[in-house]
Structures are given as C-alpha cells and as structure tokens.
Design a protein around this nucleic acid. Structure first.
Lengths: 117, 117
DNA sequence: TGTCATGTGTCATATATACTATACATATGT
DNA sequence: ACATATGTATAGTATATATGACACATGACA
C-alpha cells in the first residue's frame, strides 16, 4: 500500500517532467502551505494534512480527492454528512457491501442511477 | 433535531424509571467516565465524547451506536474503513443515494443481501 | 437528624492535530 | 562564478479533542 506522501511526490514529479512549475516550493505556494511542510508530507515525516488541504492538493495534482483522502485515512466530510443523516440505513448498506466484489457494487451504482423513484 | 446529550439523558431517565441503577453516577461508572463529565455531556455543556465512549454509552443505554454516533457528528470507524478501502466506488454509490428515498435504499439493501455473487 | 447518594460547577490537563518560521546546504541556469 | 531556486532540518505554536479531580449543594432514606 502506497502511503499518502509517496503518491503526492510521485504525482508531482510526474507532472514536473512536463512543467517546471511543479517544484515542491511552487506547488506548496499554490496549495497555500509552507514548502517545509509539503516536504515533510511527501516524505511521510508528518501525518497527512487536513481534509481541506488534502483536497486542494488533489486538485493541484489532478488526483481524485476521495482517493487521496482515503490514503490520508479519512473520508470526505460530505459523504459523512450523507451517512449521518440516515445512519441506520447507510450503515446497513455499507456493511452489507463490505465483502461484495467491485462489479457487484458498480451494478448497484448503475441501477440506482437509472432507477426512477 | 435532538442533540446528543438530550437523547442520552432522555434514554437514561426512561431506563431509570424501571431500574434505580440508572443514575448518572452509576451509568458513568459502568461506562468508565467521571460523573461530572457525563453530566456535562447530557446537558450539552461539552462536545459529545469520543467514538469509543459513545459506543459504550450506546451499549449501556440500549441505543443504536450508529445513531448515537451520528448525533455526535461522527461516522463509525468500521464504516469509514470499508469506504477507505474502495473510495471511488463507495463515494459514487453514497453520493448517488443522497437524495434517494428511504425505501429505495432499503430495496437496495435487501437486493444486495439476497444477491448471489 | 445524620448519612449517603445525587447532579453539577469550576479548574486543570494530556494528547493530538495542523500547521508556521527560519535557516541552511545543495543544485541549476546564465 | 554567481544569483537564484530547490528540498530539507530544526524548533516552535495555536487550536481542538477528550477527558479527570475535587468540591459543593440538594435530596432521599432510615
């Protein structure tokens, strides 16, 4: 399992090959954090940043925020909000799907998307 | 919307009508926290307790932990864990179901339960 | 009427979270 | 060779989170 910082560094260096502006310092500046902090994040020297910072970072790097948040050990607060509003229902559904294979879940997603209620 | 402490107090006092051992002090002792702390929790004088404490409290009061956690503004960490393992899939599913009526979600739950994969 | 239990007010604190600021050594481009 | 940019080491800090300890007033009960 790749750690958070590893992915960030890999993505940043990949982008940098085509664009000089993806140096640690410049990315840090655009994301709104100190370079020293980003450096530590990329090397796993500190815990992954807050949800807000993680999302700005994902955006900057063209990564999926949910994936980056997951690597940070977090779940997007908008998802949490949805669950919190109907805890029993969502808790049961999610636990039900714990062992389900990807394609089974995808089937459900599509079904729900196309379903008319 | 009832607040966390309100529900806890209501539940505790309800139980207490049939069982003297549901005093604030005794419940606190069984749950493993200080009475003063439980008092403040019930009156909303402090933020709801940690996930672990909330779950022990739910257990003691015969409440659904997911519901109590939701009132505490949290989502059970085992649910988060499930989502974190397949963030894209679950994120899409949950957002898809945001506006779905309860019975539509229930239908999905049943379908998944009975589904064979 | 004294003892014990009840709920609560006040103060204190440990730990985690989420960073900033400064300074420095090395590398790069001109 | 020199100015500038790069990544990093070290130290510090603000805020939130999650409680504990102790004292006190009131009420029940025997």
């Amino acid at each position: 399992m790749t750690h958070f910082g590893g992915l960030v560094r890999a993505r940043r260096e990949a982008l940098r090959r085509g664009d000089r502006s993806y140096s640690l310092r410049q990315v840090a500046a655009r994301v709104g954090i100190e370079p020293a902090y980003l450096s530590k994040i990329e090397r796993g020297d500190v815990a992954p940043p807050s949800e807000a910072t993680t999302c700005r970072l994902a955006r900057e790097l063209g990564e999926d925020p949910d994936v980056l948040l997951a690597l940070a050990g977090k779940v997007s607060s908008d998802l949490k909000e949805i669950i919190r509003k109907r805890p029993r229902l969502f808790a049961e559904l999610i636990r039900q799907l714990k062992e389900a294979p990807d394609d089974a879940i995808l089937r459900v997603v599509r079904e729900v998307r196309d379903g008319d209620w």
